[in-house]
Design a protein around this nucleic acid. Structure first.
Lengths: 334, 334
DNA sequence: AGCTTGTGTCAAACCGGTTTGATGATGGAG
DNA sequence: CTCCATCATCAAACCGGTTTGACACAAGCT
């Protein structure tokens, strides 16, 4: 492989001149620049990543810390990963997947060795030991999700609190007063998964404020049990006029569950939920929902990290992305 | 951050001695080794990845080339990614995601710069321009899937041909003579997606050999259309006694489609398919199926790549993983 | 005793970039 | 007509590891 020295020799200049031509950090005459470009093309020169990283202490790699949560819904995670990668590339970064079970150790590993310029933490929990690892590292980190007590790391997420409130309000506005709220398994709450808490608490308190009756149903990690649990909730609460679903698995079960009970949406029952349009498309889920696309969150997170890498002194931000309701007509006024 | 020089100084030895102690490439006295270890612990030393990569021309990073196929089913891809990452770690490698739309260029980018020690290509198509990129690169590559005419790169995949044949045979053995075969959209075939071709061709020719009647139904990328197409196939072929489904999306639709027609499995209709157990669990799909878990394929691919990186002269392998049928009782003898 | 072999260590070169200080040439301001 | 700033370039040092050749010393063999 051609090195910068080969290019310099071919072009008849010194190595530093080539470097300056490449980086633009010092003026280079047009003639020289052209000779250098010819040499680069002729020798098919590409800078060695390791050498560059060593010299600059920058690898142009972001570490993506994917949490090890078997319950996690794979399609959504994959979307995050893809958008992160795509956005990172557009900013000149590559993405290294860090998937070890012990996320905190994974962070230490890639930061101590200077493998990455910064880390992006997916699915941050309310108490998350990965945050401490980031704070100890020399490189910056950005959180997707919010850790309690953190005020020194940039954070971002969809505003699940506002989402919960908005959906409840939407049902209220349509005249619903008794609703069933299907959320994630208790395990997820026990694991401090932030978006589950934020959505649930906001939905419940909104319902309380509006004096609506709300039945909370926790899904189950086992799909068969989940199916049964949700079905029972439907049977036990015949007076409920609407369903608020925050659980992708239950959502996929829903058409079947409703068909079994000869319930049609929205004539017999209104349904509102939270899921990405793309996901709804994949499974034919024609429900009014908060658009929970990973795209804006992931893209913004990458931009925040890039900005933080470029300037460690910029003010810390904590952003809640405003939820957007897509009305697909599955909630009927009564 | 501490460098190897700091460690050497702290331990009162030369840098090369520390390096040798770390790599074990030269004998070091016990006393010295202990002093070095103390120094490493005291200074919290971690070798600089860039420096190591520069010195050794090895980054300990594998590039994972994820194809840009919007039709692709996200859960399966995520499983691949996770298993690849996990397996790579167990062999001392990290994984860099390469997701650019132009996969071939992505490969050139990460190999020319010596950013990766090798690449893993997911979902290789029968004619795949990424293969040429790998052949031009200095680093080795392993294909998941088979490219036509390739005999110099290690390849591996589940044996979809055998899978198709096995399922048809299974139905035949249970007495079925008229079956409906639901496969992927025509687009996927047009795009040369290997596993779709291999499964279809094997299934069809097995059916022909066994003198079974087989109706081929191509799914659609639009889920609503797919739903309709599959439903029509059911209505138009009332004499079919079994369904062979090779299409995850259609599979998820199936419970609903059958419920609408009051068909129960396996009393009224037998169903066999191909999907990972884990996926079936996620959506309650109690169908007899070829286990299509990404795990063995992905893990083996990573091992092959590691072996190839270690020894570029080892014989090229082309492995078809034997399919395993999991009988969940959804195919009834008639 | 002399020679070989093996053990343990060090100094120096090298990997391929970037960065800095120095230097000569050119041109505009005073 | 100086003087100084800017332009363009080069040599050398540096980033933090690994690798190689050399050397000192001890043990084993004849």
């Amino acid at each position: 492989m051609a090195t910068i020295g080969d290019v310099a020799q071919y072009a008849g200049v010194s190595r530093s001149t080539v470097s300056h031509a490449l980086s633009g950090k010092r003026p280079i005459s047009l003639a020289t620049r052209e000779r250098i470009n010819e040499a680069i093309a002729a020798l098919n020169f590409t800078p060695n990543a390791g050498a560059k990283a060593l010299a600059t202490s920058k690898s142009s790699i972001m570490g993506l810390i994917v949490p090890f949560t078997p319950e996690e819904f794979a399609p959504a995670t994959m979307q995050y990963v893809l958008v992160v990668s795509e956005t990172a590339r557009s900013l000149g970064y590559d993405v290294l997947m860090v998937t070890e079970v012990d996320g905190a150790r994974g962070i230490t590993r890639v930061t101590d060795s200077n493998l990455v310029d910064g880390v992006l933490l997916l699915d941050v929990k309310r108490h998350d030991d990965r945050v401490a690892s980031v704070l100890e590292a020399r490189q910056p980190g950005v959180l997707v999700g919010f850790a309690e007590g953190n005020d020194s790391l940039d954070s971002i997420d969809l505003d699940f609190g506002a989402a919960g409130k908005m959906l409840v309000q939407h049902l209220f506005d349509n005249g619903h007063r008794t609703i069933i709220f299907i959320t994630f398994p208790q395990e997820l709450f026990a694991q401090d998964v932030g978006f589950a808490w934020r959505f649930r608490d906001a939905a419940v308190s909104a319902a309380d404020e509006l004096q609506m009756s709300i039945v909370i149903v926790y899904g189950d990690t086992d799909p068969a049990t989940r199916y049964k649990v949700v079905g029972e909730a439907l049977d036990l609460n015949p007076t409920a006029t609407a369903l608020l679903v925050h659980n992708e698995g239950a959502l996929v079960d829903l058409p079947m569950l409703l068909a079994e009970r000869q319930l049609s949406v929205p004539q017999d029952l209104s349904v509102v939920s939270v899921f990405p349009d793309q996901f709804g498309g994949m499974f034919s889920l024609p429900y009014t929902a908060i658009e929970a696309s990973p795209r804006p969150v992931a893209a913004r997170a990458v931009h925040l990290l890039a900005a933080r890498i470029a300037d460690s002194d910029r003010p810390v931000v904590s952003e809640l992305l405003e939820p957007v309701l897509i009305d697909r007509g599955s909630s009927r006024a009564i």
